[in-house]
Simulated scan of single mutants.
Amino acid sequence: MGGSDPRFAHLHGGVASGVPEGRAAGPVARSLGGSRTPDPAACCAGPRPGLELTPSRTRSQNLRAAEYPPAGSQVPDAIPAVFFLRVLLEDTGEMFRVTNCRRDMTVRELKEELDLLLGIPFNLQRLQYLDQGILMDDTTLKFHDVVPGGVLSLCVWHYDGWTELVVAAVEGDPAKLCGLGVVEGSFFRTANSQHFDEGQWRRWMAQRAFVALYISSHRGHVEAVQYLLEKGANCLGKSPLGRTPLHVAAAMGQLDCITLLLSFGASTSIKDAKGETPLAVARRLNRKQSERRMFLFSWKSKTGGKDPAQLLTGPEFQKAKSGLGLKQRMGT
């Protein structure tokens, strides 16, 4: 169906900046692999998407209006099979570069990529291009005459206070999150939630806590992640695409957040709707440090906390190794 349900009924189990691994988010544009992005005007395809921050929302809007040609100005035969687009997150002023786009790519497929790239859950996204209104999920980029290098606008659904929550999570300020209905005992209410009974309100609050954790983990806001986890946010919760906060933290190489999530019980084996675990996502996006950290944590959990290096030099391993060597020499 076109457009996402603003009521977010697909969130399951409660309650998401492209930067180098182990570093805080900064204003320098980098790819998901950690390398600097090319000139924004260059039309090139890369193996991974990336993030580009602009100094102000006004500059982003001016760039969108002046730097790129209007729809239909390029000859269809001249459009490459694979190209890049730029997505402006209107509510924060951030500009993201999305590679490996195709003319036959559906809006839903693009939003699935943005879920991982922007850290904004799929069901909260509202995409627009020029003045064509909301892009329907089952339409294609070709249908909307989206051209290479074009700028799409992404807004968060304003229904039920979700925009304010997303902006606070992007900023990573625990004090702001505290007052937006993510912790038990919060007095935050919306026109819709004020009519909830106790059970409905708790589920609604858990959804908001999960979204805040998802975005904060993606952006590498360690203090916000710790605050949310300590207040009961569900690190095993899933987005509508089946992704957990660990999926997006691994995708962006947020090592400190990965460690925190794992220490609170996050799983490296949960698969998303595409069958990818956090480990698989890190491997696909060449996040080697993320992959290694999750692997070591999983190894220690299975071996009772023993370090892999100690196991390789321990007496049990050496004994087994010597026994295997003896059998090989005897030809057995």
Rank of each mutant, 00 (worst) to 15 (best):
H158C: 09
W157N: 12
D145V: 05
M136I: 14
L117D: 07
W162N: 03
Q128L: 13
F210T: 00
W157E: 07
Y159L: 11
C178W: 13
R208G: 01
M205A: 00
V183H: 04
I215M: 10
Q207H: 06
L165Y: 04
A206D: 04
H144A: 00
E171P: 01
V183R: 12
W157A: 06
N192D: 12
S186G: 00
G199R: 06
C178H: 13
V147M: 06
G119C: 08
P174A: 09
V211T: 10
A168W: 09
P148L: 04
L177I: 14
A175R: 14
A191Y: 05
L124I: 03
G119D: 07
W162C: 02
L124Y: 01
L117C: 11
H144N: 10
G133T: 11
R203I: 07
K142V: 00
S217W: 04
F122Y: 15
L177Y: 05
C155D: 15
S153K: 14
D131V: 15
V147C: 02
L141I: 02
Q200R: 08
G150F: 12
S217Y: 05
R189D: 05
G199A: 14
F122V: 15
V170W: 06
T163Q: 15
R208E: 02
Q132L: 14
V183G: 06
F188L: 02
D160H: 05
L114H: 07
D137L: 11
R203G: 01
M136E: 11
Q194W: 07
F196Y: 14
L135V: 11
E184V: 15
L114M: 12
D197P: 01
P174L: 09
V156W: 03
A169Q: 08
V182T: 03
Y214Q: 10
G149Y: 10
I215T: 11
G181N: 01
G119Q: 08
S186H: 00
H144M: 01
F187D: 13
H195Q: 13
Q128D: 08
E113P: 02
L127Q: 09
L141A: 07
T139F: 04
M205K: 00
E164V: 02
V146A: 04
L127R: 06
D115C: 11
F143V: 05
V156P: 00
L124D: 04
D197K: 08
L213M: 08
A191D: 13
S217V: 04
S217M: 04
K142Q: 12
D173K: 11
L110I: 14
D160V: 13
V156A: 07
I215Y: 05
T190L: 05
V147R: 05
R202M: 12
L152P: 02
G199K: 10
L127T: 10
W204E: 14
L152D: 07
Q200E: 15
G185T: 06
P174V: 07
G181T: 04
H158V: 02
S217A: 15
N123M: 09
T140E: 03
Q132D: 12
F188R: 02
L116S: 09
N192G: 09
N192A: 14
E112V: 09
V167Y: 06
R189C: 12
T139H: 13
V170G: 01
S153L: 15
R203Q: 15
A206I: 00
L118M: 15
L177T: 10
